[in-house]
């Protein structure tokens, strides 16, 4: 086991890849962990492929090097597969989590990835619960289940803290529900 858990999140501008990376590390920080989160800065346009990164560790994290060999990759938008190399730097011990309604075997085929592949229909969850395609929170639910070192509880608290003032109680509850559904339904 490496000292630092390294995560890469692929999405499109506006889908919340950066926000997801920040939420996950902030939840980890609340558990007393050391964290770093940073997005890839380029031309920031809605819909353009973007990536965000996170590091989580029990020890201080000194490095500022780019993450080239992530342990876990999250793909928020599966239409990126095929023209963005989403498995780049992932070893066979790595984990790929994709937002899709398809089976993980299909994703294995599409990505030709030899490691563990998990899927969750985050888009469907968010449309049903929030009436909008906001899959990033459900994806975090899936990530928490698979990564198994950040508590779902601290992520729930983080979402409450971030959203309650902004979107009100009802929508916050729905957002938390989408997190739990992502956690429960990843396979």
């Amino acid at each position: 086991m490496k000292d630092i858990l390294e995560i890469r999140i692929h999405g499109r501008g506006g889908q919340g890849a950066k926000t997801a990376s920040q939420f996950i590390v902030e939840a980890a920080l609340d558990q007393g962990k050391y964290i770093k989160a940073f997005p890839e800065y380029g031309p920031e346009r809605r819909g353009a492929p973007v990536a965000a990164f996170a590091r989580i560790s029990d020890k201080p994290i000194h490095t500022y090097a780019p993450i080239t060999n992530p342990d876990i990759v999250l793909v928020i938008d599966n239409t990126l597969i095929g023209f963005v190399d989403v498995t780049k730097g992932l070893t066979n011990k790595g984990i790929l989590i994709v937002n899709t309604c398809e089976e993980s075997s299909k994703m294995k085929e599409k990505t030709k990835f030899k490691g563990n592949v998990y899927t969750v229909d985050a888009t469907n969850i968010s449309i049903k619960l929030l009436g909008k395609n906001l899959p990033n929170i459900s994806m975090l639910g899936a990530l928490v289940k698979i990564a198994n070192n950040i508590s779902l509880e601290s992520l729930k608290n983080k979402i409450k803290e971030k959203f309650l003032k902004k979107i009100g109680e009802e929508k916050t509850e729905k957002t938390i529900e989408s997190l739990i559904k992502g956690y429960d339904e990843v396979r």
Binding site: S21, Q22, V25, E26, L29, Y34, I35, K36, A37, F38, P39, Y41, P60, I61, Y64
Partner: peptide
């Protein structure tokens, strides 16, 4: 401090 590398990196 280093632009983006630390200025935009979220950390403890």
């Amino acid at each position: 401090q280093d632009g983006f590398i630390t200025s935009h990196s979220l950390e403890n």
